[in-house]
């Protein structure tokens, strides 16, 4: 499964919690109410464990987590 799909599956099942039926790579996760304060904390842990990367404090900015595509780009930049 490619990274985008892994991310979409995770966000859909763990973070969206039924608030959106289909998540696309360029959906704004914050404006759509999918990513909240707990969601971002959860997502960072998931990325570290699943993709074996280290997310530094300075990396946790909106620009890296706004969409699935942005998260994907961020993961690739960390590998």
């Amino acid at each position: 499964m490619d990274t985008n799909q892994v991310l979409i599956n995770y966000v859909q099942t763990e973070l969206a919690k039924g608030r959106k039926s289909e998540i696309k790579p360029d959906d704004d996760l914050l404006s759509e109410g999918i990513l909240d304060s707990l969601g971002i904390l959860q997502l960072v842990s998931f990325l570290e464990e699943t993709f074996d990367i280290e997310v530094d404090d300075e990396d946790v900015v909106l620009e890296n987590f706004m969409t699935i595509s942005a998260i994907n780009d961020f993961i690739q930049s960390k590998k």
């Binding site: 404006s31 909240d36 946790v60």
Partner: peptide, 26 residues
């Protein structure tokens, strides 16, 4: 508060109202 800071783009003074209202709704 930490989340609101995260929701604020680096080059913007504040988070967008869209994000705020969506957070309030949830």
């Amino acid at each position: 508060g930490y989340f609101i800071a995260f929701s604020t783009p680096k080059d913007q003074p504040a988070p967008s109202w869209l994000i705020i209202f969506s957070r309030i709704k949830s």
